[in-house]
Simulated scan of single mutants.
Amino acid sequence: MKFKITHTTIYTFDSDVFLEPHYLRFRPKQTPYVSVDCHALTIVFEPIGHKQVLDEENNMVDFCWFEGMTNQLTITATTVLETKEYNPFDFLIYPLQFNQLPLQYDALQKKLLFGTLEGQMISQELLDYGNAILKASDFNTIAFLTQLTKQLHDDFIVEYREVGSPLQPDETFVIKRGSCRDLSWMQINLLRQFGIAARFVSGYYYFDMISPSYELHAWVEVFLPGIGWLGLDPSHGIFTGNTHFAIASSATFENTMPVSGGIRGSATSQLRTQLSIEKFI
């Protein structure tokens, strides 16, 4: 199948501002089951410099710098993708001890995965929630990841919130509701308590709907030897498939923001976004 993704982001300022250099993350990643046929980025107010760079965590980023004053910045990313058949359960965990929790990465793995293992403190109530699922899964790694992801979908209400950082894990747990990024950040910090390397992913997710209305999506990836990075989507209670299109992944959510950059000036801003995903057989 082929997909065309058109993502427009518009910042409007109530007076002229100077744009500092910006990092833009809109380019989907190439994978063995997702091929990026073409990707185009249109920027108005036009930058005087534009370079594609790899960031610290191997994400492809468009780095732009500007000259002059403006009261609007419009970024339109257009991507055409082609997907192949994909079975998220076609894997073998190796070494075999990683089939049981808690995990014990070796010394080199711990160094390379350090940021994705560094969890923040969470409440005993949230930890007890995870431990109950762990025991019910008989400490089996895949059974635990499967059941935890499904349980988060069943126990929490998913709601849309356009802007703002993810809520703290304990806050999401208490109110039993949150955006995709809230649920993902909570799951990441819970997984790290069990020694599982987990990172935050930002991207797009296509699924058939009667009245299409798509938004930027967030999910989780965990590292298991033999598999590599395995995607979990707590908002939908599933492992990710070939219609999850990752853009950026990071140990911290800040490094996955679609637009990072500042302005010089005293203006206030308004943000508008539009996202369409079209499927072609």
Rank of each mutant, 00 (worst) to 15 (best):
F3H: 10
F3Y: 11
K4S: 02
T6N: 13
T9A: 06
D14M: 06
V17C: 01
L19N: 03
L19G: 04
P21G: 08
P21E: 08
L24Y: 00
V34P: 08
A40T: 05
L41C: 06
I43M: 07
V44R: 15
E46C: 03
I48Q: 13
G49I: 04
Q52T: 11
V53Q: 15
V53F: 08
D55V: 10
N58V: 04
M60L: 15
F63L: 15
C64V: 05
G68A: 05
N71S: 13
T76G: 02
A77Y: 07
A77S: 14
L81R: 10
T83S: 13
K84F: 14
Y86Q: 02
L92A: 15
L92F: 09
L96I: 14
L96D: 13
F98I: 00
P102S: 08
P102A: 11
Q104R: 11
Y105S: 03
D106W: 00
A107S: 11
L108S: 08
K111T: 05
L112P: 00
G115V: 01
T116G: 04
E118F: 09
I122M: 01
Q124D: 14
E125I: 09
Y129K: 10
Y129Q: 00
D138T: 14
D138K: 15
T141C: 06
I142S: 08
F144M: 04
F144P: 01
L145D: 10
L145V: 02
Q147T: 13
Q151K: 13
H153R: 12
H153N: 15
D154A: 14
D155I: 00
D155P: 02
F156I: 05
F156R: 06
Y160H: 15
G164R: 09
D170W: 05
D170S: 09
K176P: 01
K176E: 01
K176L: 01
G178D: 01
C180I: 03
D182F: 05
W185K: 01
N189E: 10
Q193F: 01
S202V: 00
S202Q: 05
Y204Q: 05
Y204K: 05
Y206I: 01
D208S: 07
S211W: 00
Y214P: 05
E215D: 11
L216H: 01
W219E: 08
V220Q: 10
L224P: 08
L224A: 05
P225E: 06
P225C: 04
G226E: 04
D233E: 10
H236C: 07
I238Y: 06
I238D: 12
G241H: 11
N242P: 02
T243W: 03
T243D: 04
A246C: 13
A246F: 00
I247A: 11
A248G: 06
A248R: 10
S250G: 09
A251R: 03
T252Q: 11
E254G: 07
E254D: 14
E254V: 10
T256Q: 13
M257F: 12
P258A: 03
P258L: 09
S260R: 15
S260N: 12
G261L: 02
G261E: 00
G265L: 00
T268R: 15
S269L: 13
S269M: 07
S269P: 04
S269C: 05
Q270M: 13
L271F: 04
K279E: 08
I281P: 13
